[in-house]
Amino acid sequence: MLRCLNGLETAHGGSLKLEGRELLDPKTDWREVRQQVGMVFQSYHLFGHMTVLDNLLLGPLKVQKRQRAEAVAQAEALLARVGLLDKRDAYPRQLSGGQQQRIAIVRSLCMNPRVMLFDEVTAALDPEMVKEVLQVIQGLARDGMTLLIVTHEMAFARAVADRIVFMEAGRILEQRSPESFFTNPQTARAQQFLEKFSYVESLPEKPQKELI
């Protein structure tokens, strides 16, 4: 679904609207939409042949044709915010997965998007690095930015989300508030899913995780 929202994949049917505009219209200018809809991928996908700063500036300078000084100032401010200002001249290969993912988030933010899409952004990270990335996302959520997050971090989804969308095989099965989804799922598939999840959660001697 996220890939459809960004035009990387074509939807089979239905309707996608961004600020009242239908995106599945064949006349949609995806380049323009993508500047408003930031996307962060599971495996970061930074440009390996460029420094961190060049990664961040490519969009603002080449796509949005902004002034270099202003774009650099914004990029540095955002880097500072995710605690990676000292890495501005590093190459992606020199950074850890968590650092690369935070840079990837900043790369999207530099375009000043209206919406951000997060596609399993912590799935490829080891647990210690998950936290630093989730903190950045949490900060964005607190600022009131619209975020669409695909995740298997259930606790995170429950804590941060305003709405949970439960999907299977490309279809939306359930769509409700986090509290009601996690405490009282309606579909059998969601119940089954949460049961499995709570079983894993309860393994390390913490049986009462209040799920189900």
Binding site: N6, G7, W30, R34, H45, F47, G48
Partner: peptide, 29 residues
């Protein structure tokens, strides 16, 4: 990698910009 192309498209690069700033430098190396 295809992912590099998607990554470039997702920040709004045109196909020509993608070629110049992402594909050719990486393919060259």
């Amino acid at each position: 990698p295809v992912a590099q192309l998607e990554s470039g498209r997702s920040i709004g690069l045109s196909e020509l910009q993608l070629l110049r700033h992402v594909i050719l430098p990486q393919a060259g190396l």
